[in-house]
């Protein structure tokens, strides 16, 4: 008999969140907690997971932009979870860079979800995992967080902050045997990138979900998704700042 485990997916009504829930349900016989704002949508996904994969799935409301609710969310989630907990943080918004430049408060809204919300809920959940002396944490960052690109630096900044936070969180939780995996996806073919010009680079969310699950189960510290972004970003990180600030991409 397999040991009981629970996957908590924050941001589960996003395209990649739903795909990850499906991938977990198909590959592991784990309980799945879907967390997000659109409760109707999440209930539909939970039903779909139960019918297709026979897993135990339930929905808990979660608003990344409301950090004062996160303590209660973390308590409720850990009460409902069974066995080893894997927390996956996927909540994110990406207003267009030019929209942010016209209306700078959009940047604050974005940081609230992508970074502040992530920090608060993950700190609460980290405390709970420490008490249970086990678990896993998966944080979805972005290749956009590796450099401040002219075309997308507001979003990139929120993700760069998330990367630094995740690195430190990994150091904190490591002694308890809690592994933290940072995923850095390239563009994914979901509603987040639908409004952008078609690039052909965007990865199908099902394939992204498969790669995220594999990286997590192998205990990887950082994983680019797809892996080809690893060498690409290594090259981009080596571009000297003096040159990078002249680039328009």
């Amino acid at each position: 008999m397999r040991q009981a485990e629970t996957w908590v997916i924050l941001g589960a009504s996003s395209g990649v969140g739903r795909a990850l829930a499906r991938e977990v349900a198909a590959r592991l016989s784990a309980k799945i907690i879907l967390a997000g704002r659109d409760l109707h949508d999440l209930e539909d996904t939970a039903t779909d997971l139960r019918i297709r994969h026979g897993v135990d799935a339930e929905v808990i409301g979660f608003d990344a932009a409301a950090p004062d609710t996160h303590a209660e969310f973390a308590a409720r989630t850990t009460r409902r979870a069974e066995g080893l907990i894997t927390v996956c943080f996927l909540s994110a918004i990406m207003p267009a860079q030019d929209a942010v430049e016209v209306q700078p408060t959009l940047a604050a809204e974005m940081v609230m979800v992508n970074l502040a919300g992530a920090m608060v809920v993950l700190l609460h959940l980290a405390n709970a995992l420490e008490k249970r002396r086990g678990g896993r944490v998966v944080v979805v960052g972005s290749v956009a967080g590796d450099r401040g690109r002219r075309k997308n630096f507001a979003y990139g900044a929120s993700k760069a902050g998330l990367h630094a936070f995740t690195e430190g969180l990994a150091a904190r939780l490591r002694p308890q045997g809690i592994l933290v995996t940072l995923i850095k996806p390239g563009p994914l073919d979901t509603s987040m990138t639908w409004g952008l010009p078609e690039s052909g680079l965007a990865l199908d969310p099902r394939r992204a979900a498969g790669a995220i699950l594999r990286a997590t189960l192998r205990g990887r510290g950082t994983a680019y998704v797809p892996a080809i972004w690893g060498p690409i970003m290594t090259a981009i990180r080596m571009i000297p700042a003096a040159i990078f600030r002249r680039l328009r991409f």
Partner: peptide, 9 residues
């Protein structure tokens, strides 16, 4: 084209 992922969208 729009490609809604949820009924709300």
């Amino acid at each position: 084209a729009a490609r809604p992922e949820r009924i709300a969208a």
